[in-house]
């Protein structure tokens, strides 16, 4: 249990997908104008990461590896299978969101289906493979990574809501400021980088 908590904390705060690896930047920068939509997208990312990670683990363990049911090394199919799993999960999230919160569905717009190509999701799955996690660890990693990304996007959304009232120089308004904020946030997040929970 302690091991799983370590992986969760590490992937959420120390190796934050958004602010340490700068993954998933397109939707991170585009949908972070208000806290409400950022909150919705963040939850969707947590959900998709938390679901796709264990499914992808099962696929790479039982279908693609040499010890799997086909008995041969099919890792060259990894990328395409991961993407299709992610795409189908996103489709599911989209239907759920549309059914239960049409307003959020409308405000997320194209960025909800675009979670499919959100590099944080695919990146998470590929990290999981390269770090050789087992099933429960991959669940913890998926949820932790999603939570870290969620925290990063609602924080930047709150900041961007606040600086709407600031006299930001014209050329920097909008996306320019978002890039600057992301960089400075990455700097602030370095406070927890370097902690190794397994060392204790």
């Amino acid at each position: 249990m302690g091991e799983l908590a370590n992986i969760f904390i590490k992937s959420a705060f120390i190796e934050n997908l958004a602010l340490a690896y700068f993954l998933g930047m397109c939707s991170y920068l585009a949908v972070s104008k208000t806290v409400k939509t950022a909150f919705g997208l963040g939850l969707a990312v947590i959900f998709v990461l938390g679901i796709t990670m264990p499914i992808n683990w099962l696929i790479s363990e039982y279908l693609l590896s040499e010890n799997g049911i086909f008995g041969m090394d099919l890792t060259f199919l990894r990328l395409i299978l991961f993407i299709s799993v992610i795409a189908s999960m996103v489709q599911l999230v989209e239907m759920v969101v549309e059914k239960f919160s049409p307003s959020l569905y409308n405000s997320l717009g194209i960025f909800l289906p675009l979670i499919t190509v959100n590099c944080a999701i695919l990146g998470g799955s590929l990290f999981m493979v390269s770090k050789e996690y087992n099933f429960s660890e991959s669940v913890a990693f998926g949820l932790g990574g999603g939570f870290g990304w969620f925290l990063a996007i609602i924080a930047i959304a709150a900041i961007r809501e606040k600086i709407q009232y600031s006299a930001v120089p014209g050329p920097l308004r909008g996306l320019g400021m978002a890039f600057l904020l992301t960089g400075l946030m990455g700097m602030a997040f370095m406070s927890l980088m370097g902690i190794d929970p397994a060392a204790f």
Partner: peptide, 22 residues
């Protein structure tokens, strides 16, 4: 806990500055 830095307050304050609007 963090072996990378000798002292924590600078980074902790910057970290919470990030979250103060939230």
């Amino acid at each position: 806990i963090n072996p990378a830095y000798p002292e924590g307050w600078m980074l902790a304050i910057l970290f919470l500055n990030t979250f103060a609007p939230l």
